[in-house]
Design a protein around this nucleic acid. Structure first.
Length: 260
DNA sequence: ATGGTGGTCGAACCA
């Protein structure tokens, strides 16, 4: 099973790129972030005519996540548990039956957290605590589980072109990285890191100041695997060429192939 | 040191 995550930065602005990429990559499941649209604004017919089932958790103007899948999910849940007052659409979960059993896939858009001295950074840390509790609960199921999405976390200095630039940024602060490590310490595997420890492997390049041309990127889009998923990992890779397309997202897709 | 870009939505916010 081919599972992808991609922050598309606006589903309406990116629909042609999204359709072209789905045709080229042909993933079984695609986790999308930053729809920047309400559910009714998602051009779902364009996706359905490619054979995808479409589950969205949208929001006007900001955030918004979706799971596209060739098979219809058995179960879908919207919103990250732990705060009923959280209005931001950043999480959707789907469960699929497979020949070998079941696979559970969560699509998440973790808060950016900047500026650090605003209420946004504590919101990010609280969100990461909620994700940690959710992950603990789901681990007990002992299923192949993928937590895929835009984490807005640079895990290590090697995951950015110039670590000095990111000192003090919400994506790279020690507290942010520690919260991400807690997820790894629970037993989750950073899929891409586990197969590729090469430097200069990035998933995001800013639109500004020629970041793409200079390969001034960061690795912030991750697929975290439960032990049952990690033992079935066949490959993990980034698709940087998509960043060079016309009217690109500032993020590119990241893929894992699992034997599930 | 500053400004550099892009999406959404129609001024300002988010990244």
């Amino acid at each position: 099973m081919k599972i992808a995550t991609w922050n598309i930065n606006g589903v309406k602005a990116r629909i042609e790129n999204l359709v072209a990429w789905l045709k080229e990559c042909d993933p079984d499941v695609a986790c999308l972030q930053e729809l920047k649209s309400i559910d009714e604004g998602v051009p779902r017919e364009r996706l359905e005519e490619l054979g995808y089932h479409v589950e969205t958790h949208g929001q006007k103007g900001f955030n918004g996540v979706a799971i596209l899948s060739k098979k219809t999910p058995d179960e879908v849940n919207r919103g990250l548990p732990g705060d009923d007052g959280d209005e931001q659409s950043r999480f959707i979960e789907a469960v699929f039956s497979t020949e070998k059993g079941v696979v559970r896939i969560c699509c998440l858009y973790l808060p950016n957290g900047n500026p650090v001295d605003s209420e946004k950074y504590p919101y990010k840390l609280r969100w990461m605590e909620r994700l940690q509790r959710f992950a603990e609960d789901r681990l007990a199921l002992e299923e192949p589980l993928v937590l895929a999405g835009d984490y807005n976390v640079i895990p290590e200095p090697v995951d950015c072109h110039d670590p000095k630039v990111w000192e003090g940024d919400a994506l790279f602060l020690p507290q942010t990285r520690a919260a991400f490590r807690k997820l790894e310490n629970l037993g989750f595997t950073d899929a891409l890191r586990s197969v590729n420890d090469k430097a200069e492997t990035y998933t995001f390049w800013d639109y500004q100041a020629g970041a793409w041309q200079k390969n001034n990127g960061i690795r912030i889009d991750h697929l975290m695997l439960s032990p049952e998923a990690a033992s079935r990992l066949k490959s993990a890779y980034v698709e940087p060429h998509v960043r060079a397309w016309e009217k690109p997202s500032d993020h590119v897709p990241v893929i894992v192939e699992l034997d599930v």
